[in-house]
Computed example of a mutant assay.
Amino acid sequence: MGERQTRLEVLRYLREREERSAYGWALSTEVQPRLQHSVQAAAAQGLAELADREMRAELSAHEGRPVLWAARLSPQGHDVLAYLQASPAPAPRSAPPEAGEQIVELRPSQMDALRVYVNLLPGLCVPPADGLVERVRTAHFDRPNNRWRMALTHEQIETVAYAFYLRAHSGSAAEANQFTREYGITYRPEVAVAPARMGA
């Protein structure tokens, strides 16, 4: 199990113990020594809290026996679990595209630019194509190839090109140029002609 997964399992364990505890603390008698080490590592990252001497004395009084060690989630630890629960699971890499879709692979800088665009909602005059926001949220990161993978419709792909068009006009054209080379799509706005003013 990786370090990140181990950390999340420890946070889940602490939350479970807190919910069962009358005082909101996981006590040393309830946490195996090997897990105590992982809890202390989580505390070093600000994700858990260890009871100080005064709190241990208070818990000892409640328990009627010495409490030598106790821990609970920090507010940040609670929020990590809440964020994890609210986040959709990434799309599996093996999921084939449905009819009318194709796999699009974006470099990290391209994905960053696309996320900036979708996060502008609801203030956009040209909003993303239907379903694109969810595809961005559930994109799969292909670590060996350093690419974000999504199955997108043609309309969604055109929206991606529009995001890179905005990026090109506000900083870097690299993302748009890469996308054009790889997918042959470039966003080009229609030339707008303003109506004549009254009395002109």
Rank of each mutant, 00 (worst) to 15 (best):
R135V: 01
L121I: 11
L124E: 10
D142P: 12
E134A: 15
R143Y: 03
Y165N: 05
T153G: 06
L121N: 04
H169F: 07
H140V: 04
L121P: 01
N146H: 10
H140R: 11
G171W: 07
Q156I: 05
R167C: 11
R137P: 00
S170W: 03
F164H: 03
A161G: 04
C125S: 13
P122S: 05
R135T: 02
R167N: 14
G171Y: 06
G123L: 15
N145P: 00
A151S: 15
S170Q: 09
V126E: 13
V116N: 08
D142G: 13
L121Y: 08
V133Y: 05
R147Y: 08
T153E: 09
T153Y: 05
F141V: 04
G123Q: 15
E158D: 10
A168E: 13
E134H: 13
S172C: 05
V126T: 14
L132A: 07
Y162C: 06
N145E: 13
L152D: 12
N119W: 06
A168L: 01
F141G: 04
P128A: 10
T153V: 02
R137Q: 14
L114W: 07
R149D: 05
A139Q: 05
A173Q: 08
H169P: 00
N119Q: 14
R115D: 10
A163R: 04
Y165S: 02
A151Q: 06
I157F: 00
V133F: 03
A151V: 01
I157W: 02
R115N: 11
V118K: 07
Y165E: 11
A173E: 13
A163K: 06
V160H: 05
L124W: 10
Y165K: 01
G131F: 10
Y165T: 01
M150A: 07
A139K: 00
A151T: 00
A168H: 01
P144N: 03
N119V: 00
L114M: 06
V118E: 11
N119I: 00
T159H: 05
C125Y: 13
R115M: 14
H140L: 02
P122H: 03
G171S: 03
R167H: 08
G131C: 10
R115K: 13
R115I: 06
G131L: 11
A129F: 08
V116P: 00
A173H: 06
Q156N: 05
F164K: 02
N119C: 08
